[in-house]
Design a protein around this nucleic acid. Sequence first.
DNA 1: AACATTTGACCCCT
DNA 2: AGGGGTCAAATGTT
Length: 290
Amino acid sequence: MEKVKAWGKESLITELTQGKEFVNQFDPLASPKECDLLLEKILSSLDKSLSILNCEVLNGTNDPFPLRDQGQKKKRKKMLQWSKQVRICGTELESFNHDDGYSWRKYGQKNILGAIHPRAYYRCTHRNTQSCLATKQVQKSEQDPLVFEVTYKGMHSCKASQSSIFLSYENQKPNQCQIKKQKVEKLNTIKEENVPFTPLKCESQNAQFFANSIEPFTSESMYLSLLPNQEEEFEMDKIFQSSESDRIVFSSTPTSIIESPFCRDWDSSVDDQLDVHDPNLMIDISEYFT
DNA sequence: AACATTTGACCCCT
DNA sequence: AGGGGTCAAATGTT
């Protein structure tokens, strides 16, 4: 069993490293054909990594609702889970429809004890057609009515999800990536000013790091954690090596909190300060991975 | 008609 | 036992 874990970890690191290299090779000036090819390679690496996380390392099963044992009383392990905060603009106040690149169907809503606002439950639209078991919960923040706390559970296995994130980037105007870059730089400035933040309680069986780190961007925070034993198994700080110039900092901490500079809210006025109409702006996503 | 949402009931976990 | 999460029938929307 330990050998299996070690093999999975090794394979995971290999795949992620390869994926990182592909991202580093990304050249916005390259031909669309070359970009497509590279994107396919990146997707392939991510797919393999996710498969390893799903099947080999964690549970030795493909079941995203794994059982603890084979006894008569079969209990489910907690699914992978991570949370983020999404700030909406005023016009969205009445109907939260944050587009995170996935297609969701609402299947329930509950009033939560001690919470002012009800919690809404969503599942992937492709649950029936592609057996995609990803779900998410959305609850309006008590502190800030413009902030929604979104908790994702389970990883998408549907085909749409495998490429939608990347495609959503392809479909964006090129300068949007630059806007994000500038926002992140702005955030780093804010970070240096020690803006306080409160990590959400979250836990995970594994994590969809890449997918989340490159989501279509909104004013949102994302917190991700590994359970202590998983940190031992994955040593994610070794997988996601950081440096002084990092834009995204993945680190394994004693408190099991992995945070990203993306994770901080910024003043919406930042958007106004940015020049979003410069046609010469370049896409540079590699920095988010190196 | 097909798909999405609502909502009360039920199940499972702590 | 109680709360959170899910189911599924009813209802609404496209």
